[in-house]
């Protein structure tokens, strides 16, 4: 190295000692040594972490494999057996597929409606909670931590927990699923909404306050128009997730296409053409909703810039 360098201030204590003895200037060899040592240490830590992670993955895989009814290496050769069987049967009864589509359309609509209604209801709850949990906007500033924790808890509840309890009380059907998903959605969207609310311009709110608007008027006319595009984009994302959730909840008894799928599956061989029709309907719905919501969200974020 052509010239000595000054040591950066944030380096460790023992280097400072070298610093003093050399009168503020460090010999190049020492810098090189220190750098290489640091590099080695970094690599060592990285290596140890990597080994630890790999061991964790391998150990976890082994454990899961041992606890599973069928082993991984046994099953992997049979992965395509079931899809092949279903598709084979469906291919044999191709002419019946359109009729099945028509049969299961109402169930599909119910699933989509569960997702739509729960997104809407959840978003309305999230709107209120998030406003109550944002500094500068909250109606009761002291209760901000309370509403934040409330949203944390709501977010943590898996939909299936509420759905199963409600099915026991209310009986099967779309309403338990809707309430369960709306509950979780309120928590999840509430957190995202309150992040959006933090960046709100307070001038319209102050203006409304100066003309005597009460809290709900200030929020509705001062805040909501500013945050609406962001909210909408998050709601669409949530709608995609909720369609999947409502299909899964149907499988545990909450109505919709998931319930039909469970029935079609339980009829077993010879009836798989119905299962195939439901698979296709569900797949198509998810893809269409994902794509449509992606397009709308892109457009929303494009207008956002201006």
């Amino acid at each position: 190295m052509p010239y000595p360098m000054y040591l950066p201030a944030e380096n460790s204590g023992d280097n400072k000692m070298v610093d003093q003895s050399a009168g503020g200037i460090m010999p190049t060899a020492a810098i090189r040594g220190a750098y290489l040592a640091q590099n080695r240490r970094k690599r060592l830590y990285g290596g140890v972490l990597l080994v630890f992670f790999v061991a964790l993955m391998a150990g976890g895989f082994d454990l899961a494999d041992a606890r599973n009814a069928g082993g991984f290496w046994n099953g992997i050769t049979h992965v395509f057996d079931f899809p092949a069987e279903v598709l084979g049967e469906a291919a044999g009864k191709l002419h019946e597929l359109p009729a099945h589509f028509v049969t299961f359309l109402p169930a599909l609509i119910e699933t989509v409606n569960i997702a739509g209604a729960s997104t809407l209801v959840g978003a309305m709850m999230a709107l209120v909670f998030s406003l109550l949990a944002t500094r500068g906007l909250a109606l009761w500033p002291r209760a901000i931590p309370l509403f934040r924790r409330l949203m944390d808890v709501m977010r943590a509840v898996p939909e299936i927990v509420i759905a199963l309890v409600l099915i026991f009380i209310l009986g099967g059907g779309p309403v338990p699923a809707m309430i369960a998903i709306a509950f979780h959605t309120a928590g999840a969207l509430g957190k995202l909404f309150s992040e959006v609310n933090e960046n709100v311009d307070l001038k319209p709110v102050d203006g409304l306050a100066s003309v005597g608007g009460n809290w709900s008027q200030r929020m509705l006319f001062g805040v909501v128009p500013q945050v609406a595009p962001n909210y909408l984009s998050y709601m669409l994302l949530r709608f995609e997730i909720n369609i999947r959730a409502s299909a899964i909840l149907g499988f545990v008894g909450a109505g919709g296409i998931g319930y039909e799928l469970k029935n079609a599956m339980s009829w077993g061989q010879g009836k798989y053409d119905e299962a195939a029709a439901i698979f296709l309907l569900l797949f198509a719905t998810i893809v269409v909703v994902d794509q449509a919501s992606g397009v709308i969200r892109n457009r929303l974020s494009a207008t956002e810039v201006h």
Binding site: L63, A64, R67, N68, A69, G70, G71, F72, G75, I76, H78, V79, D81, F82, P83, R244, A247, I248, F251, G258, L261, M265, F279, L282, F283
Partner: peptide, 15 residues
């Protein structure tokens, strides 16, 4: 959901 159904046919129930 569908992956779970397909895979549980091949691997049986379990984690």
């Amino acid at each position: 959901l569908i992956w779970t159904i397909i895979l549980s046919r091949a691997f049986g129930p379990g984690p």
